[in-house]
Simulated assay, not measured.
Amino acid sequence: MARVAFLGLGVMGFPMAGHLAAAGHEVTVYNRTAAKAEAWSSRHKGRHATTPRAAAKGAEFVMACVGNDDDVRQVCTGEDGAFAGMAKGAIFVDHTTVSAQVTRELAQSAREAGLGFVDAPVSGGQAGAENGQLSIMCGGSEQDYAAAEPVMAAYARICRRMGDSGAGQLTKMCNQIAIAGLVQGLAESLNFAERAGLSIPEVVEVISQGAAGSWQMQNRHKSMAEGKFDFGFAVDWMRKDLGICLSTADETGASLPVTALVDQFYKDVQQMGGGRWDTSSLIARLRR
Rank of each mutant, 00 (worst) to 15 (best):
A59W: 01
S41M: 03
R43G: 07
R53S: 12
H25Y: 06
T33V: 12
E26M: 10
D71M: 08
G24K: 10
V72D: 09
A37I: 04
C65D: 08
C65N: 02
P15N: 11
S41E: 04
C65Q: 01
D71C: 14
A49I: 09
H48T: 10
A54I: 10
A34C: 09
C76F: 07
D71K: 06
H48W: 15
P52C: 11
H25M: 04
K57R: 06
N31D: 08
S42K: 10
A37K: 04
G18K: 04
G24W: 05
D69S: 11
G46L: 06
N31G: 01
A64H: 07
R43W: 02
P15E: 12
K57N: 09
W40S: 01
A22S: 04
P52T: 09
T51W: 14
A22F: 03
A17P: 04
R32I: 04
C76A: 15
G58R: 10
K57F: 11
M63C: 14
A64M: 07
S41F: 03
C76S: 15
V62P: 06
T33I: 12
R53P: 03
D70Q: 15
T33E: 13
C76G: 09
G18A: 05
V66P: 04
T51P: 05
P52K: 10
H44W: 15
F61C: 03
H19L: 08
A35R: 14
A54N: 11
S42P: 04
A34Q: 10
G67E: 02
E60D: 06
Q74M: 15
R73C: 15
A34I: 00
R43V: 08
A34E: 15
V27G: 05
V27D: 03
V27S: 07
H48P: 14
V62E: 00
V75S: 14
Q74N: 15
V66M: 00
A56Q: 12
H19C: 12
